[in-house]
Amino acid sequence: MDVALSITAFPVLARILAELKLLTTPIVETALTAAAFNDVAASVLLALAVAISDTGGGHGPVTSLWVLLCSAAFVAAWMVAVKPAMGWVAGRADAAGEGGSEVWVAVTLVGVMASGFTTDLIGIHAIFGAFVFGLTVPKEGV
């Protein structure tokens, strides 16, 4: 319960700071970085807590370890393979001009769904996969 409650309302914080036009100040950048790191760490801990506490169906510590290892492999694979691919797609969408934005949206939606589906197969919530996919989207471009 503590882990679930430690997750911040990061989008709300970012929206409030954007409306106050404070997003570019160094202290706010530090605060948002700390909040993002806190959310990532809490999400990982929450996934681990859910995997460990899953007692239905005879799951035990071996299953929990498997979920943890698969989750780490998922994050590593997405950062190594999907992040550069998304950068390439963003570059192509920029170069394509007007017609590239539809391709960008389609690829992003498919990526979010695939990430969520993969984490659901692993045994953690699909929102974790969508969050990890969001980390692969480049800041510049499109």
Rank of each mutant, 00 (worst) to 15 (best):
D2M: 14
D2F: 15
V3K: 04
L5M: 12
S6C: 10
S6M: 05
S6W: 02
A9K: 10
F10T: 06
F10E: 07
P11I: 03
A14L: 07
R15Q: 09
R15L: 11
I16T: 13
L17T: 10
L17R: 02
A18V: 02
E19T: 05
K21H: 14
T25G: 05
P26T: 02
V28M: 06
A31R: 00
A34R: 01
A34G: 05
A35D: 04
A35S: 11
A36I: 01
F37W: 09
N38L: 12
N38Y: 00
V40Y: 02
A41K: 10
V44K: 02
V44P: 01
L45Q: 12
L45R: 15
L46C: 04
L46R: 11
L48T: 10
V50S: 05
I52Q: 04
G56L: 04
G56Y: 02
G57R: 05
G60Q: 02
T63L: 01
T63E: 13
W66A: 15
L69C: 14
C70R: 15
S71I: 13
A72P: 03
M79D: 06
A81R: 04
V82M: 12
V82T: 09
P84V: 08
P84N: 08
P84H: 03
G87L: 06
V89Q: 10
G91T: 06
G91W: 06
G91L: 06
G97H: 05
G100I: 12
W104A: 14
W104C: 10
A106D: 09
V110M: 05
V110F: 06
G111R: 05
V112K: 00
M113W: 12
S115R: 08
T118W: 02
T119H: 03
T119D: 11
D120T: 11
H125T: 06
I127Y: 06
F128E: 08
F131H: 05
V132T: 08
V132M: 12
F133V: 02
F133T: 01
G134E: 09
G134P: 08
V137D: 13
P138Y: 09
K139M: 11
E140I: 07
V142F: 10
